[in-house]
Amino acid sequence: MILSDFHIHSNFSDGKHSIPEIVDFYGSRGFGSIAITDHLCEDTTFLGRAAAYLERTLTPANFPFYLEILKSEKKRALNQYGMVLIPGIEITKNSLSNHRSAHIIALGISHWINPNLPVDEILTQIRAQDAISIAAHPVSNHKLEKQTLHLWDERKLYAPLFDAWEVGSGVNFYEEVARSGLPMIASTDLHRFSQISGWKSMVKTQPKPELILDAIRNQSVSFHYYEENYDGIACINPLDFVPRRRDAWNLDFISAT
C-alpha cells in the first residue's frame, strides 16, 4: 500500500513552496507517491489572463522548466526517499459562473496540452499521452469560495472520459461522488504545508509511476483521512502521523478494491 497525494501546487502556479521543498516535505513523512499538479489556465478568458499576469499559472514559457525540474526531482525523490514523483498539471477553466468552471487534473503528462480546447478534446489529449485524467473538486463544498461544478453538471457526458473523480479534496469529503458509482480518488489540493491534513489515497501496487497510474485506473485505491498538527517541519516526527479513518464516515462502502 502506498500513501499518496496526487494534487499538489508549487510556486510554478499559486503554491507557496518550491518543488524540491515539496519533495522533502512529503518524503520525510513517508509518502510513497506524490503528484505535482500546477495550474495551467486558459489564456482566452479574463480570469485566465489575470492568472498569467499575476504569475499564477504555467505558461508555454515556463512549462519546459517545470517538466525539467520535475524530471530532476523525480530522480532525487526516488534515490533519497524511495518516493515516486508523478508529473501533473491541473487544467484550469475558470469562469465567473461556478457552473462553467472546471478543473481537470492530468497525471503522468510529458507534453504541453492546450488549455483552451473543449473539455472532451483535453481529455482525449491526456489519454493520448498515456496519462490519466481526474475531475478535481467536482461538487460544491458548501463554502463561500469559488466552486467548479461544470464537470459534475455534465457527468453523464464526461464520465467515460475520466479515470477518476475526487471524492476527497483537502478536508472536504464529497458524499455525492462517493454514492455515484464513479471511479474515485482523494487528494489534498495542497498549496501550503499547513494544509497537509486531509483526505489521501492509499494505492495497492508497486512503487512505479506506470503501476500507480494503472492502480488508479483499476481503482485499487482506498481513502483515508490523514491528520497532523502542523507545528513547523523541524519538530515533526513522521512516525507520529498515523493516517486514520474519519469516524463520521463509514468508508468501507466506498472502498473500490
Partner: peptide, 16 residues
Amino acid sequence: FLAEDFMAGESMRKLG
C-alpha cells in the same frame, strides 16, 4: 529566451 539571465534567475527561484 533573449533574457537568458532573467530566466536563469527565475528558474533558480523556482528551485527554492
